[in-house]
């Protein structure tokens, strides 16, 4: 599926881009989080390679506009002139979940979806010393004694929360959700035995191989990072949730410009040095360009809306 998409974008690349003069001034990538965070590091890595691929003295700068869980930065991109000089990082489902639980000046249609780079699947985890050896054992207790299983998350209204919600729905189990301040805090509480289980992105577990037991990964196929871990789907629960990080621009960008940027981002993705840098930072890659990315955003928006309608978290 992803290969086909990549092939399609390459064909697009063969046609010579019309915007020969673009860019004639610095391109800005807005990051809605502080410098040094996971998203910021991705943006800076992309910027570095994008600059190189655009060539001709092009300059790509990263601008951090942190605040309100990224909302201030996402709003900045949505409201920018669609001239290709203001791009931004886009975190799914977080960016769109924000539009459900508070008033936002943007929605799923406010962006031109250029390319997604990272897809970090959610996992169901327990501490290595936990009595639960399989997902089935964990869910059995959560069904028998509703609320008895405390389930650590990084926050409400993010991929962790949606993952827990969808798993509870699919299995008819009932967890007590405990939203910590960030994934690292949730992980520490899990290791210290303060919560019984939890969900977090797969990349959050890689440095803790001996300390954390991953019971299931919530994706349609097993992760190349942990081929030993079954998917929830294999175990009979059709639940998929992940954290996605890509690059978008404001809605209303010219088709030629959009095409050119997608093509260049595709070339960036093909660069082995780029792939190595991203892998070193622990980012599981999933390059999804163009319309497929836009469809994905709409699908995620639907998931967030459905969960919000059914069980609003505030």
């Amino acid at each position: 599926m992803k290969e086909i998409l990549a092939a399609l974008t390459i064909t697009g690349f063969a046609a010579a881009p019309a915007f020969a003069e673009f860019p004639d001034k610095p391109i800005k990538i807005v990051v809605g989080y502080s410098a040094g965070g996971g998203t910021d590091v991705i943006a800076r890595t992309v910027a570095q390679f994008l600059e190189k691929e655009l060539g001709d003295g092009a300059s790509v700068i990263v601008k951090n506009i942190p605040g309100a869980g990224g909302q201030i930065g996402f709003t900045e991109v949505a409201k920018a002139a669609p001239d290709g000089y203001t791009l931004g990082t886009f975190n799914l489902p977080a960016a769109l979940a924000l539009t459900k639980d508070r008033s936002a000046d943007y929605d799923v249609n406010s962006f031109t979806y250029l390319a997604n780079f990272v897809e970090d699947s959610n996992t169901v985890v327990v501490s290595a010393s936990s009595e639960f050896k399989t997902l089935e054992e964990l869910l059995a207790l959560a069904k028998k004694n509703p609320g008895a299983v405390t389930f650590g998350l990084s926050s409400l209204g993010g991929n962790d929360h949606f993952a827990a919600n969808m798993l509870a729905d699919a299995s008819k189990a009932d967890f007590t959700l405990v939203p910590f301040k960030g994934a690292a805090m949730a992980r520490t509480a899990l290791l210290g035995g303060h919560v019984a289980a939890g969900t977090m992105a797969l990349s959050q577990t890689t440095s803790f191989k001996d300390e954390i037991r991953v019971l299931a990964v919530l994706s349609d196929e097993r992760s190349p990072f942990r081929p030993d871990v079954p998917t929830a789907k294999e175990l009979g629960y059709d639940v998929e949730m992940s954290s996605l990080r890509g690059i978008v621009g404001p809605a209303g960008m010219d088709a030629d410009l959009t095409g050119k940027l997608r093509d260049v981002l595709n070339v960036v993705n093909k660069n082995p040095d780029f792939q190595k840098a991203m892998a070193d930072q622990g980012n599981p890659m999933a390059f999804i360009a163009g319309d497929a990315f836009a469809d994905l955003a709409r699908k995620q928006d639907g998931v967030a809306q459905a969960i919000w309608d059914k069980s609003p978290w505030k």
């Binding site: 040094g36 965070g37 590091v41 690292a184 440095s207 930072q281």
Partner: peptide, 23 residues
């Protein structure tokens, strides 16, 4: 553990991450 004791340590973690050093 990846949890910063102070705001400064939080920023430093970012500096480590840039060099591919995950806590």
């Amino acid at each position: 553990l990846g949890i910063p004791g102070t705001a400064v340590a939080a920023v430093m973690l970012g500096g480590l991450l840039i060099h591919g050093l995950q806590p």
